[in-house]
Design a protein around this nucleic acid. Structure first.
Lengths: 228, 228
DNA sequence: GGTCTTGAGATTGGATGCAATCGCCCGTAC
DNA sequence: GTACGGGCGATTGCATCCAATCTCAAGACC
């Protein structure tokens, strides 16, 4: 993942695009979300600093940022660990999502272009065709983000994104235990959602989405071994 | 103000309770919430550092924290300003609250002690007795927090608190334009909420609370001059 | 043999100094 | 008179260094 930009004469890995803190935070975030740092992993500032060719200072700020996002837990004078969730905590996050994602969808629907809606159907179809777990997660994320892409919100979109990120690890574990048939309902729900969006029926779309999230929450609760 | 660090082992002015970053963040947060730093105010790192007898480093981390909370806006290489909201953004935050605060209430109600519920009635009565604006805001905040005090959540309580904080300034401006009569509905809603909680009827309490927040949002929209 | 204490090592937290960047003002050309 | 460009001051961003704190393990005492 560590992209080495083709620097002409500078051996430094630092492309100096934006702030170093943001770059380190972004790198850590994607690493955590891709499962390279599983929950409970300790994160040492010095290691990350050396890994990114920066000092510990931007790393500390990045860790603060990730802590605010809920991806990392900081203990004063002790260290940082990748956040882990138990079933109850994951359940809570899903209940929050169940309430606010429909709202985000309502923000989005009036502003979605016809092209964007067409893209939704394509994404749903690709997932239905049967893909590997990691790609399924990726497509599922992109699908739902696409349904929200019309929303121009100050906070809501970001809040939803953070909730997704915090449960990403357990969604992966759950998906690993599924066969193709188990996803039948998911695909049906996705198509129902696309149809509701196509007809610009925000209320119906809210209902379908809330049910989708709610069902996923109940499914997760039926597999508590994931949280050991 | 400026503590002279020349003494090696002299008694530091700093009580050294927790991390300096948290202390600075807490101080800035309360200052912003109390209206000492109105929206749009520029925050210079050096000033804050000197003001708290610390270096700029903890100040930077505090600003990062407050940015994540939405109270401060940071622009790279430029500076930090106290966040300001327009009507649409404030409306969005209220719509989010309308969806998730009822959920938090449902988490709380089963675990509320009878003493805590009695305290609710007392707070509602004190507000009704007629108090100055700043005290009204304080009591209102304490009242609603008390209704949530039974909830043992990972994220939801903190999220709600942040949403309150971000709209605090505009709630104050709105309250300043009210006479005693205009608060009649507010008091009625508070008492309805207390009664629903007393009977441990979470569904009814959710309905009352959602209506309370929704009505407040509509009231704010009727006073757009607040956001100039 | 078990438990408390104490020390060294490791790791984080904070302060200072320097480099990079941005905004502003003034001078100049058109 | 106005618009553009260069330089200067101010402020932020990052690296290095030092202090404070925690962890962990070995040893002494009960």
């Amino acid at each position: 993942m560590a992209s080495t930009p083709t620097a002409p004469d500078a051996p430094a890995v630092i492309p100096r695009d934006g702030g170093a803190s943001e770059r380190v935070a972004e790198a850590l975030r994607t690493a955590i979300l891709h499962g390279e740092y599983p929950p409970g992993t300790r994160i040492r500032q010095e290691d990350v600093a050396a890994q990114h060719g920066a000092s510990r200072l931007p790393v500390r700020e990045a860790l603060r940022l990730l802590e605010a996002e809920g991806l990392v837990r900081l203990v004063a004078n002790t260290g940082a660990w990748v956040s882990s969730l138990n079933l109850d905590e994951c359940d809570e996050l899903y209940r929050i999502r169940e309430r606010i994602e429909p709202l985000l969808l309502t923000y989005s629907i009036p502003a979605l272009s016809d092209d964007a809606i067409a893209e939704l159907g394509a994404l749903a179809a690709r997932m239905e065709a049967g893909v590997a777990v990691e790609e399924f997660l990726e497509l599922d994320h992109r699908f739902h983000l696409a349904t929200y892409s019309g929303a121009r919100t100050l906070t809501l979109g970001e809040t939803v994104e953070r909730l997704w990120n915090r449960t990403q690890h357990y969604r992966r574990l759950y998906s690993l235990g599924l066969d193709a048939d188990s996803n039948r309902i998911v695909h049906d729900e996705h198509h129902m959602l696309v149809r509701a969006i196509e007809s610009r029926d925000a209320d119906d779309a809210e209902r379908v989405l809330a049910g989708h999230i709610r069902r996923t929450r109940l499914e997760l609760a039926r597999h508590p071994h994931i949280f050991d």
